[in-house]
Computed example of a mutant assay.
Amino acid sequence: MSDRPYPSALQARLIAALWRLLSHARPITLWRLARRLGPLIYRFSARERKVTDINLREVYPQFDDTRRARLARDSLRHSTATMLELGFAWMADPARVEASIQAVHGRELLDEARAEGRGVIVLAPHFGNWEVLNFWLSAHFPFTAMYEPPKIAELDPLIRQGRERMGAALVPTNSRGVAALLKALRRSEAVGILPDQEPDWRGGVFADFFHRPAYTGTLLPKLVARTQARVVTGVARRRQAGEGQPQGFEIHFLAADERVYDADEAIAARGVNASVEAAIALDPAQYQWEYKRYRKTPEEQQQRSDYRRHRLYR
């Protein structure tokens, strides 16, 4: 048998080498590179362009075609920047990453909750650079987050090391992971949840996201009910050099919509989505619109339910 690496192994080596190389660059250099690559991705990556355009038509129907196209191009530039910045967030000297975070807004929300002996659930949507947010949280608080290994398995050790290097605890996306989150919250620690990642059919409900039903996870109300934790939304917004500071990031913590504390899972899910909407409003171009947020539909759920009922009564 040949000892040549499988394509995924070779791909992992190339990606890891690129991240290590880019980890030495400054954020302004990475942004300039993203601005050059973003238009190419918009032009040649049909899938990303199509999904982004569809999502923006659903979310911003009041925008004309020119404005939506400009927002789509800007969004793909920011998504490109996020990918280029992964090496910086995971491998650059921690002092450099910390220095790139030029402001932290709303930290008192976390400090006050912990002073009251309550844990904090941080809703971290796919906005800006969520790996910089993970860096800051794990550097400043005891922090636990769920982690699903990447599709390219050979990258798992590198990604895990990058996310854990400042002290974060990564737990699996299963019942053991949920138990670990509960324990962390009862110790008045912070935990992270991805609020805009579509769960499987047993783990969510439909709730409006920008006025259209989106299948939304129901883990949050379960955690709140058992721990009385405070819920905040957290993002690392990319700040442009033209905003009076060097290129870098600013962390925003926003109080979550009050509906997240409702015992009704559907109401709580709407509160989660409203909290994500409020974060997106900081800069809509920095949200990852190429994610298929509306992939599952209520009609599909009804069809599945009808099929199970048919099987049951056959």
Rank of each mutant, 00 (worst) to 15 (best):
E116P: 00
N55V: 05
R77E: 15
Q245F: 14
P221D: 15
H78C: 05
R49M: 01
G242Q: 12
D64V: 06
T80S: 11
S138L: 00
T80Q: 05
F206Q: 06
Q197G: 03
S45C: 12
L155E: 08
L86N: 11
R73I: 05
A225P: 11
S8F: 07
R77M: 13
S23E: 15
A81R: 14
I28M: 10
K183S: 04
S23R: 09
A214W: 11
L185V: 01
S188W: 01
R239F: 09
E258F: 08
I251K: 12
L84G: 14
Q102R: 07
Q161S: 06
A99D: 12
R43H: 12
A236L: 09
F210K: 09
A115R: 03
A46D: 08
W19E: 07
R226G: 05
V51Q: 10
G117W: 03
A263Y: 09
R43Q: 13
L254Q: 14
E98R: 10
R20T: 08
Q197D: 00
L18Q: 01
F209D: 14
R186H: 05
G167E: 04
A46G: 07
D3E: 08
G234F: 10
Q11P: 03
L37G: 09
G106I: 00
I251R: 12
A274M: 13
A190V: 03
R176S: 02
R36I: 11
R4I: 04
K296M: 06
R238H: 14
W136K: 01
G106W: 04
L194F: 02
L185R: 01
I121P: 01
A225I: 09
F135I: 02
A92K: 08
